[in-house]
Amino acid sequence: MSEDREILLFQNIRQVILAERWCMENKLPVRVIPVPKPHSSECGMCLEMNRREGDLLMTFLNERGMVPRRIKLSHL
């Protein structure tokens, strides 16, 4: 199933919290998870989402001034 999932890595913790809040408010399905191991130097949280929602979420967040890094879980 992981190939259907993607994660969004943010600059800092505050951005994760804001992004999650905005997504929830707009009924965009995301889940907060620990940053996966290859990226664990960030030592915090990231958002996990269904790949189908990826483009929509990126556009949504970009419009709000956020430029998260989008990573396909199958590549981890």
């Binding site: 913790i13 907060v32 998870i33 620990p34 030592c43 915090g44 949280m45 990231c46």
Partner: peptide, 13 residues
Amino acid sequence: GRSAYPRIFQSTK
């Protein structure tokens, strides 16, 4: 911050 389990998420939020 520092991790992502619910207790931390709520506190960070």
